[in-house]
Amino acid sequence: MPARNSGHPEAATESNPAVLELYRKSRAEEFGITAGEFAAILDDVARKGLSVSVSVNSPSSLTSSSSSSPSSSSWSRERQEFFSRLHVEDLALARACAAGNERAWQVFMMRFREKLYDAGRQITRDDAAGRELANSVYAELYGTQTREGQRRSKLWSYGGRGSLGGWLRTVLAQEYINHYRKQRRLVSLDQECEEGTQFPAATAAAIAAVDERLEVAVDRALRSLAAEDRFVLASYFLDERTLAQIARSLSVHESTISRKVEKLTKSVRKQILKSLIGMGMSRREAEEALTTDARDLSVDIRASLSQDSAPVAFSNTGAKADERGT
């Protein structure tokens, strides 16, 4: 198998029990990947995952015992923890498929082919569209473009941090959103009008009328929240996801999210009121300000639009990074 980023002597990995253990666990040998090539794959993944340009190829990199300084020891521990979380079996399979190993493709087909179609159906909620979506992703996985005479498979960008099944589902979902967005951009203005799409009117006057202090207070209240809390609020208020969906995404019970939403809403309201009063409003004025129509708030339209309709919303950043690293 032509390993990428190889050039690492096999003897070095054989002297490293941690690498060998991961190699054994990954069953990469079945797909013709040598221990040296596997170490090169780990190097590649660690470089991207840990965002530190230190080579994994040094034999001491996976063992803290051979590290002398405390910083390198902690780095080694971090790396060990990183590697222990990797789905090495999936990683070996993906890299072997990307390299064109037939046996790997057989295993991949057996494990994921139907799952890919099922996921496509679930995402699009349509049998034909789901199949089309899965086929388009499947083509990318196989590699439709060539670079320097070699096929470029999307599977190169998989680094084993999540399961291969989960990664495939995410790639499908991204592809679906990109596809949907492309279609939406192609829809004519007349068609959108026929569909009943409403376009926002210019609100310059309204914006001017709203007290800026309210925006500042809301922003301040949101900034004081933990990231998870903001995620819950955004999912519940903005995306109108169900409590069950949010609970699943955070691996907690639905009732936990229910309590959290209630608590957060009260807390945010209290903080906004406090901020407004702190900025010179009376309690009554602050209460009245809270009833302001949200449409009157000056929303950063430009940021919102650039986020919603970027030409390539989900480019293959992993693959690009991968190419850069080659």
């Binding site: 589902r169 499908l172 959103i177 990231a227 903001r230 995306d239 699943r248 986020q307």
Partner: peptide, 16 residues
């Protein structure tokens, strides 16, 4: 995720 509507949508779509 708290700031990106698109990624939240992908996350929820990709959940089995």
């Amino acid at each position: 995720l708290s700031a990106c509507t698109d990624c939240r949508e992908v996350l929820y779509l990709a959940m089995p």
